[in-house]
Design a binder for these strands. Structure first.
Lengths: 239, 239
DNA sequence: TTAAAGGTGACAGATTTTGGCACCATTTAG
DNA sequence: CTAAATGGTGCCAAAATCTGTCACCTTTAA
């Protein structure tokens, strides 16, 4: 019996029984009274709130609201959560969004600090708006999460991005643009890029992009994307 | 040097240097070659993807997209994240919402299963709509997250909820209602309750509720709340 | 062929964890 | 009041685990 799994067993037992004595716990997890007491102390250090009543009829009691959970997340998952909360916040602060932020802050604290900075910088490139409901959105494709690495690299290292694009008429073309921003108009998601060949901004629906690849190019410039606050000048975007 | 901190040091070094040899790592973290190899093996077991090139010029390389983070979250924080993602999904599926769900699934897997069921059941009571923008929302108060425990208890144990309520005219009254649903009209958040004294549904702005308390009462009935799909019959709600 | 790299197994020594014990403080039953 | 039940602490030896050393293997590039 591992120390970690013994801790888990203790928490589980406390949750199940509501209240329990040290000796009963020791019996349950197959460890000595002394060890269980040390475990309780360790769990308290970890943030669990465990009440104890001393004396006859007393025992230990786990504060159910204080339950901790230990999750192991990958960077793309953290990224997705960050976007979710950022999008929700942009849509109008919900109650609990502070609490969600607190949770995310803990997750971020567990990431290497440079990775956090990268993610935040990427999220700075997001613009979230409201799509007018009369648009025809019958053909929304699923966005492939495999796109993420190339986009992250291109945005953060200020590289060009090259990809295949199927336009609204079903024609496939090869594009190479400076990634300037990401525009979210739920449920659509656009890349806003500066196309040097056309000397203008172009927007690309993410679900029509495939095989993206970050391409180093010294001519990259960060440009001022013509978003004004929450007003999106792209409101006449073809779906 | 702890095992845990040595693992962290190894991951940090691999991230910083991009690629590194076992001997260099051993030197860096002040441990033997053998120990570092054991640590690498342990990290791989934990889910880190570490590529290795054998032979002259080879070395270890951490797959940057596979970076894991170990976060410790409390139940209310998990709850807030669940609501965020649920709300975002209701607002129109964003790309990455699947990824966010995958992350949340991992978090939930780390929770006791009954707690997960409770949280899901609570979230079932949420109705998320769109607030028409012409409403006057100048006086939105902050919702206190301390309200959560009482609401969770009342909803899940089917108990009445008693609270102080300040209405739009600033009058304070004591209410006791059957909690039937939660209505989210960003950025507002309502409790939809059946008030037995008035024999009708009433809605209460959450930021005007204080001192909520769950009260067991055998007369509680689950009622059909007159929401129709996404159409909210409460659209004439006074803010 | 040789040197540089990752990887494995075995074993003794170093370190940490565990169990047992004595003991203390508090509370409730009788 | 007294006794029993409970949480809690300090100490130390035994048990378990971790670590370093060493020998050796495989693969790869010069």
């Amino acid at each position: 019996m591992n120390v970690r799994s013994r801790h888990d067993a203790i928490v589980r037992t406390l949750r199940r029984n509501g209240t329990s004595t040290v000796d009963a716990l020791a019996d349950e997890v197959g460890a000595s009274r002394r060890t269980v007491l040390r475990d309780i102390s360790a769990l308290r250090d970890e943030g669990y709130v465990i009440h104890s009543d001393v004396g006859r009829g007393g025992g230990l009691q786990l504060d159910t609201q204080s339950l901790q959970t230990r999750a192991k997340l990958s960077v793309p998952e953290v990224f997705a959560l960050l976007i979710s909360v950022a999008a929700m916040r942009a849509a109008g602060n919900l109650p609990f969004s502070e609490l969600a932020d607190a949770g995310l802050a803990k997750i971020e604290k567990a990431l290497p600090s440079d990775k956090v900075k990268d993610l935040r910088a990427f999220i700075e490139c997001l613009h979230i708006g409201q799509l007018s409901p009369q648009q025809d959105l019958s053909d929304i494709g699923k966005m492939d999460t495999d796109l993420l690495p190339a986009f992250e690299t291109a945005f953060l290292a200020r590289q060009f991005i090259r990809f295949d694009y199927w336009d609204a008429k079903g024609r496939k073309t090869l594009r190479k643009v400076e990634p300037q921003a990401m525009l979210i108009l739920p449920p659509l998601w656009y890349l806003v890029g500066w196309d040097p060949a056309r000397d203008d901004f172009r927007h690309y629906r993410m679900d029509r992009i495939s095989n993206p690849e970050a391409v180093p190019d010294t001519s990259f410039r960060r440009r001022h994307v013509p978003f004004e606050d929450d007003v999106c000048p792209y409101s006449e975007l073809p779906p």
